[in-house]
Nucleic acid binder design. Sequence first.
DNA 1: TTTTGAGTTGTTCGA
DNA 2: GTCGAACAACTCAAA
Length: 473
Amino acid sequence: MKKNIIIHWFRYDLRLSDNPALKAAIDKGTVLPIYIKDTHNADDYAMGSASKWWLHHGLKSLEQSLEGNLSFYSGDPMAILKKIAEHFSVQAIHWNRCYEPWMIKRDTKIKEYFKEHGVDVNSYNASLLWEPWTIKKDNGEPYKVFTPFYKKGCLGSATPRPAIQKIHTAAYVKDNVSSCTLENLQLLPGIDWDKMLEPHWDISEQGAQKCFIDFLDKGLEGYKEGRNFPAKENVSRLSPYLHFGHISPNQIWDELSTLESTIHTDHFRSELAWREFSYSQLYINPDLPKVNLQKKFDNFPWRDSSELLKKWQQGITGIPMVDAGMRELWQTGYMHNRVRMIVGSFLVKNLRLHWRHGERWFWDTLVDADLANNSASWQWIAGCGADAAPYFRIFNPVTQGQKFDPEGEYIRKYIPELCDLPNKYLFNPWEAPDNILKLARVQLGSTYPNPIVDLKQSRVDALSAFQSLKAGL
DNA sequence: TTTTGAGTTGTTCGA
DNA sequence: GTCGAACAACTCAAA
């Protein structure tokens, strides 16, 4: 006789606390918790290397939390679920909703199929405070500007669902017939680049909680201003945990609600809301990852240079602030938000390479690579997105460094070959007199590169490129 | 339908 | 060194 079970399909909800779909499944009976590596539906948006590395460890710790009761599969989810139904009597399938366009399409098909075949399919919201279709203007249209989206749209509608307490008792079952092992999913990279990432992260539900508590402890006070300084510990670094669902935004929102409201708690909430805004943009514009939201940018005169792109990726542009950011990314799988804007602006405006090159690189190397956030943010910095930066806003990586890393701690951490330069020339070594360079044992062009582009000239060129755009209309 | 005020994150120049 | 204006209009949200 086949065992009567409820499937809980883990996706971006790798946690046991505040997991609505899992909770509801457990309330119904014996649960088969599964993870499927989808090799059939993702196209260009299959996970990048850093994401896969993170996922591997996230699944490992989830498996431990479930005392080994997590069944792994690789392939086409539809076929795999059908196969499971051959061995078990599946009473229901549960999952928490995902919002990447290809996943919505896939999940809709699966839901339809199993409903037709008498299986109850239930989906839940576990990763957004407000799902995209619930936030609308009075006339029913979606918002295109952040401030009204958040202030009126989000804060003016229903308060977010309170987080659900952690599950303690549950009946789990494992599929020993058609499942594979975590190792079979082959999520770890071929080169041992991931060894560098490891010391920076505790990839687990507990790790997420600890990260959040540390932030409340050390980062929240002074957050509003401090979040701009890459050497300070004011940012939460919760993004990868939020992406994979080791922690939910609801858990964060609830906790903030117990604190006295300050400009810092308010600002941190608004940063969470930016995530919601990105999801809303992606939901409304499924081709956000590829297509300029502002059509006039389709005629923008991008340059094409794999050589320049490679130097940007490797952090050898000769612009210290940019190189520090790109090296932080490569070494830790993360980059401070302020620096993301600086390297983004540099790629798109100074090098004038298409924002999609940046989007692709970040997708592959960020542990928090998130389709909605990544696409919306690249469009924002390029100036072609919703509520985007005006085109004349071109970051100067020298000025930005002097302003937000005044003591040069961040640059020295990631560019040790410049550590003996005085602050006056740390952000712009090409302007340093020879004797200063010599004293700091810096040889431009050999120990550290000359700038691959002239900041002043490329700024002027970018502005005129935008001019041509306007003239071409 | 029309009007009005406002819009995450910057830089440069000249007084 | 500091400050305001210019950069470029344009679209959006809401009255």
